[in-house]
Design a protein around this nucleic acid. Structure first.
Lengths: 199, 199
DNA sequence: AATAAATCTTCAACTACTTTAATTTCCATG
DNA sequence: CATGGAAATTAAAGTAGTTGAAGATTTATT
């Protein structure tokens, strides 16, 4: 006998409900398209050059999307925490090779939606087109704001913005990852944090 | 008697043709939805806080999308040149107030597509959904690359990337605008250019 | 054409951030 | 619980980029 793990779908349904209204049948159908997955700390969800086959909703844990430059240094495009979707959006939409890596910074549990299942969802419950369009728009705006901040903010201001955007995350993950997100060295981040806490 | 200005639609049809295939009737219908407009150097196409009512295709000239920070300094999110669409995409999609200004750096001629006309276009020629989805995806990827470059490139490397992305534009516009795009001072850009040309 | 205004260049002094390296703290694993 | 390796801290010296100020060049206005 096979026992299916109970899916923890509260968080994701709550997230959807913030954008569109679903009846019970629609919720059930949506759930039936989601595949639970877990990924261990330090394991990869996506490798650069591979195609991003799923959108992954983070139920618990933390991931990072990053690139590696010619000198072998990491640069973090975004973190994903509970209640966020994560993927290489471009790769997922176009089914072209991804330009980033995604790996887990903590043991993480996900609910995954494959491209074919997303198409089925759009067909049966067109309201979801609106939902994912809003997700894409928010991602777009977030990128735009980050460009703006990289032009106008000092490293200290960018750090405070990071804390505002990912509350509590500064306690959970290694500082070198935060530094790679801010575009500074871990050494300088350490100095910044001392200065900020010191006053 | 009113004489309508002849629309120069070659460039835009060529641009569309790179992504989707249109028959003659579809081309004519598309053209009928476009409104030509001109905007003088230094005039605004969009003010922060206003709603972006059109997508504007640039036939000739040059625009910049920018924000102004608390110290009164400009930061350039993007330039638009011949063959590009420009708008505050978020404001256009959501019809919420724009977070940026757009103004002309040269006398510029545009072909504008209003939100209602875009809806009509989608209805009659659904292929255009694909076209504008590709435009949005490209914009998204461009933003992502720029974030990446702001994390990993020096100012000199970012300048070279700017030249690659906007060929010839470095000859056409004021250096202070390029500096505001790169996130450096005009003084430092001046030093960079001397160094780059000097070898 | 003359003048005013904006922009660009150059230099020198300054600040934000990096690099290197030594020391300490934190955890993962045997 | 011991220990080896990764990550964080600190300090000192170096570099990328800023600021301010003066002069030169370009662009706009009358």
């Amino acid at each position: 006998m096979i026992i299916f793990a109970a899916m923890d779908t509260d968080l994701i349904l709550q997230h959807v409900a913030q954008h569109i209204r679903l009846d019970e049948a629609e919720q059930t159908f949506f759930n039936s398209l989601l595949h639970p997955a877990t990924i261990r700390r330090k394991d990869h969800l996506l490798l650069q050059g591979n195609v991003s086959r799923h959108e992954s909703f983070i139920v618990k844990g933390c991931l990072r999307t990053y690139t590696v430059d010619d000198n072998g240094q990491d640069h973090v495009l975004m973190f994903g925490i509970e209640g966020w979707w994560i993927s290489d959006l471009y790769s997922f939409l176009t089914q072209m090779p991804a330009s980033c890596f995604i790996d887990a910074l903590e043991d993480t549990s996900l609910l995954q939606l494959s491209k074919p299942n997303l198409e089925k969802l759009y067909e049966k419950v067109p309201k979801f087109e609106r939902y994912f369009r809003l997700i894409l728009q928010n991602a777009f705006v977030a990128h735009q704001q980050r460009i703006n901040q990289s032009l106008s903010f000092t490293a200290g201001e960018r750090y405070l913005e990071f804390v505002r955007k990912y509350p509590g995350l500064e306690q959970r993950i290694a500082q070198k990852h935060i530094a790679a997100y801010l575009g500074i060295t871990p050494v300088f981040l350490s100095m910044l944090r001392r200065k900020l806490s010191g006053k």
